[in-house]
Design a protein around this nucleic acid. Structure first.
Length: 738
DNA sequence: AGCACGCCGACT
DNA sequence: GTCGGCGTGCTC
């Protein structure tokens, strides 16, 4: 065929110049990319961030790899716009595809997680600045002289900045610009954070910490995929150890991502980082100001930002050249995202490192059973840090057998614990009472007819919040004012609160210690995060004697004067039907008791329990977690894993018919042969976890993603009865698919 | 996911 | 008589 455009004959008989078409991932639950045509003169490549028409609106999409499908060419619409933004690299695209396949999520929705920065796709606007050209104005005035003096002290100034610094109004500066003394230049906007310096201060590690750091540094120097698990008690210097891995990665010119559970992303963490590197990392989390969000996203893609510390969503930032991921508090359930795309950021971090061929470091004082198993099998290299750093001593921990040390009638604190609190407060030290239960009482009933207050929407008990005079459902958020009469029998003033919440413990504490300064900390304190930070600071400064808190006191915060930790109900959570109940309890209790004794003061922990022989209790007081993990691993193998050696847990949720069909389609497309799936059906499933709406949870054995899909296909034959959709959370060890 | 369309119940 | 609830269908 002729390529000579002057050949009229050829031109007439050739097809009109067919526009190139490309696959584009759009932010909607389609199983694969849509095809769009590329207008003449537009340059796109896989990874390009584009704007495309979708139905009535314009959406952000990403040009994808692969061949276009055979969609009716008449339906093809052109790409509207290509953003002036570095394309998502192959590594990122592979990661998105992998996560989509693994989580059975539409790839477009996974891609969308990487593009969560609405206005960041065009370059940041240049900042207008002034440059001193030279010369002097014909008429020199005192104000003008001041401006010239001031300008000489710096290299570049903004118009208002210079005026402000010189103490004159902007019109003086404008006058000098008009006379050509200054010229306007455009500067690239300042980086969002200063560049961290790996050698800002040298490593101060010694002994086991130094050895641990060396081990990880070896991996970092190799610069290949490797998973290390740092397993060390609270205060053992885990952070300092992984800081060295970060330093080495920075020296190698690569970017670093530090993942933290949202709640651990505190000012004190950022300051620790700054002390070591001379600058803070960029932050990434859900309530980052939009402007900042854009900047961080943009500077992550361009490689300007070297270190990002973020919550799980930071894992989907399209870094330019990521070279290390740290997953701190690796065991934390907050790494699981449980809506839209279901994923565990810890596992996906391992996957991202594998795809990018760089090291990943998991860090925890109480590793997840999964990571522990991977450590034992040699898939992860484990680094133990058994001792505390510096002068911090671990607290002395004791169990209080509640059968022998019963609390007084109507109370929940044993005499042993009450005495210990008294002594602590006398010495001017602080006591922490931990109870993982918000509100006043978890159950309210009528003494006359036995009526129990239940949530009208989801059938779980309503929790009394006496302070707010409300009954609340902690499952679905429903709340109603606390009535005075029983709605069943109408009797007045015969409602009785059953069991303790933090508010009720506070009441008891005030009865025992009316003069002590008491603070209750739970997620429903008024005033939000800001207020919480203030309270935490106040506590750290010693402005409280007794702190009563739920799990939010367990994370990240150091209270230097805290020398007593009392766990009001250590057994809470052991019997809620969750297969991870024991593990979670162990982790939580370790974290809470670890709050004490971090500055060298002799400290104690008292754990009230009705099950002193329980392996969790034994592990906590002995400080020897090994036996506990051994038991936990074999327990899980026995209960769930035997034929296949992997655990999968699936949440099937029933919401709308529409979603059910979408997922069904996806699964039908995928499902190859099935090998042995056994089901612990809804009856055995830990309902407590997902109580509410039309949800139930299922545990399934299977080795492969396809097993899950096949199972779900079977499941669908029942799903219509539930009027529902099927959403899936795969909670399998992702390494089995690498 | 978002958005439009369309069909039935309580109000300006 | 309309407003608005959500059930349904559609998007290259």
């Amino acid at each position: 065929m002729s390529t000579d455009s002057s050949d009229l004959f050829g031109a007439l008989f050739e097809a009109p110049p067919a526009n190139r078409t490309v696959p584009v991932l759009v932010p909607m639950p389609a199983p694969r990319p849509y095809s769009y045509s590329v207008p003449e003169g537009m340059a796109v490549e896989p990874g390009s961030v584009v704007q495309v028409p979708l139905g009535p609106r314009q959406v952000i999409g990403v040009v994808w790899d692969g061949v276009e499908d055979d969609v009716d060419p008449k339906k093809l619409r052109p790409i509207t716009h290509v953003f002036d933004c570095p394309p998502l690299n192959k590594e990122m695209r592979d990661f998105i595809d992998w996560v989509a396949a693994y989580t059975l999520s539409p790839p477009g929705l996974v891609a969308r997680m990487a593009l969560r920065a609405p206005n960041a796709f065009e370059p940041e606007p240049m900042v207008e600045g002034l440059r001193f050209v030279g010369g002097e104005p014909e008429r020199m005035t005192p104000a003008r002289a001041r401006v010239l003096d001031t300008a000489a002290e710096g290299l570049s100034w903004t118009r208002t900045g210079l005026a402000h610094a010189a103490g004159v109004s902007t019109s003086v500066v404008d006058g000098l610009i008009a006379r050509g003394i200054f010229e306007t230049i455009f500067l690239s906007p300042p980086p969002v954070v200063a560049e961290p310096d790996p050698d800002f201060i040298g490593s101060r590690l010694e002994g086991p910490q130094k050895e641990a750091a060396e081990e990880i540094l070896d991996e970092v120097r190799k610069g290949e995929f490797a998973v290390s698990l740092i397993d060390g008690v609270t205060g053992s210097g885990k952070t300092e150890v992984y800081f060295e891995a970060i330093a080495e990665t920075l020296r190698r010119g690569k970017q670093v991502l530090i993942l933290l559970p949202e709640i651990a992303l505190t000012a004190s963490f950022l300051e620790r980082f700054q002390d070591r590197f001379g600058a803070k990392p960029a932050e990434w989390h859900s309530d980052l100001a939009p402007r900042m969000r854009e900047k961080v996203w943009r500077q992550a893609v361009t490689g300007e930002v070297r270190v990002v510390a973020g919550a799980r969503s930071a894992l989907f930032l399209p870094f330019e050249n990521l070279g290390l991921i740290i997953v701190d508090e690796e065991h934390d359930p907050a790494y699981k995202q449980e809506d839209r795309v279901y994923y565990n950021a810890r596992d996906m971090a391992v996957v991202r490192a594998r795809i990018g061929d760089f090291p990943v470091v998991l860090v925890s004082a109480t590793p997840s059973v999964e990571s522990q198993v991977n450590g034992q099998s040699g898939r992860y290299s484990t680094i133990h840090l058994p001792t505390r750093f510096g002068d911090a001593a671990l607290p002395d921990l004791h169990l209080v057998d509640m059968r022998r040390h019963a609390p007084e009638r109507g109370g929940f604190l044993s005499p042993v614990l009450v005495r210990a609190i008294g002594k602590t407060v006398e010495k001017g030290e602080q006591a922490l009472l931990f109870l993982n239960r918000r509100g006043y009482a978890p159950l309210t009933l009528c003494r006359v007819c036995g009526h129990r207050f239940q949530c009208p929407q989801c059938s779980s008990w309503l929790v009394e919040h006496r302070f707010r005079r409300q009954l609340q459902c902690h499952q679905c958020g429903h709340s109603e004012p606390t009535p005075e009469a029983c709605p069943e029998c109408g009797t007045l003033d015969h409602l009785v609160a059953c069991g303790p919440g933090v508010e009720r413990i506070a009441e008891e504490v005030e009865r025992h210690f009316p003069d002590a300064r008491t603070i209750v900390l739970s997620s429903d304190i008024m005033g939000g995060v800001k207020r919480l930070r203030l309270e935490l600071d106040a506590i750290a400064k010693g402005e409280a004697d007794i702190v009563i808190g739920t799990q939010l006191v367990a994370k990240g915060h150091n209270f230097p004067l805290m020398t007593l930790v009392g766990i009001v109900d250590s057994d809470l959570g052991l019997a809620n039907g969750d297969p991870r109940a024991a593990e979670r309890t162990f982790q939580l209790l370790s974290q809470v008791t670890g709050r004490a004794g971090r500055t060298g003061l002799k400290s104690h922990g008292l754990l009230q329990t009705y099950q002193p022989q329980h392996p969790v209790m034994q592990a906590i007081v002995s400080g020897d977690a090994r036996a506990f993990y051994e038991r936990e691993i074999s327990e899980r193998e026995r209960a769930i894993l035997p034929p296949f050696g992997r655990l999968a847990s699936i949440i099937v949720s029933a919401d709308t018919r529409h979603d059910a069909e979408n997922h069904a389609r996806g699964m039908r497309n995928a499902a190859p042969q099935v090998s042995g799936i056994s089901v612990l059906g809804p009856a055995e499933a830990p309902l407590a976890l997902v109580r509410g709406r039309h949800r139930f949870r299922l545990l399934v054995h299977g080795r492969r993603n396809s097993d899950m899909q096949a199972y779900l296909r079977a499941m669908l034959s029942q799903a219509p009865k539930e009027r529902g959709s099927v959403q899936v959370q795969l909670d399998i060890d992702p390494q089995s698919f690498l």
